[in-house]
Simulated assay, not measured.
Amino acid sequence: MYFQPVNAILAAYGLTLVTAGGPAPTPTPTSTGNPPGGTTWQAGTGYAAGATVTYAGVSYRCLQGHTAQPGWEPPNVPALWQRV
């Protein structure tokens, strides 16, 4: 068994950990007329799976729909973004 304390990181980003059912959040999809390489990543924006963004001059593809939060920049969360 492995234990990783999460309270500090949850508090740092104002998050809560849900361990039982409930409705999943529905992200707001990005516009469809994106330029090549997508739009520039921005916190507070909803991204649908498959959307592309640029961050620090690098293109990324969204792997799962979500609303971006500070600290969730594409190079920081490989569960959400894949470099293309």
Rank of each mutant, 00 (worst) to 15 (best):
M1L: 09
M1N: 07
Y2V: 09
F3L: 08
F3S: 05
V6N: 03
N7S: 14
A8K: 10
A8G: 04
I9L: 15
L10E: 04
Y13C: 01
Y13Q: 06
G14R: 04
G14F: 11
L15I: 00
L15A: 12
T16I: 11
T16K: 10
T16R: 12
V18A: 14
V18N: 09
T19G: 09
G21M: 06
G21I: 06
G22W: 08
G22A: 09
G22R: 08
P25G: 07
T26M: 06
T26C: 01
P29F: 10
P29A: 13
T30K: 08
T32H: 06
T32L: 14
T32S: 15
G33F: 10
G33D: 13
N34L: 11
N34S: 14
G44E: 05
T45D: 00
G46I: 07
Y47C: 02
A48F: 05
A48D: 12
A49F: 02
G50C: 08
V53T: 07
V53L: 09
V53Y: 07
T54S: 12
T54N: 08
T54Y: 02
A56H: 01
A56L: 13
V58R: 15
S59I: 12
Y60E: 06
Y60D: 06
C62G: 05
L63P: 02
G65F: 10
G65R: 09
T67G: 06
T67F: 04
P70G: 02
P70H: 01
G71K: 11
W72I: 00
E73G: 01
E73F: 04
P74C: 09
P75C: 06
P75A: 11
P75I: 11
P75F: 13
N76Y: 13
N76R: 15
P78F: 02
A79C: 08
A79D: 13
A79H: 07
Q82W: 00
R83V: 15
R83H: 01
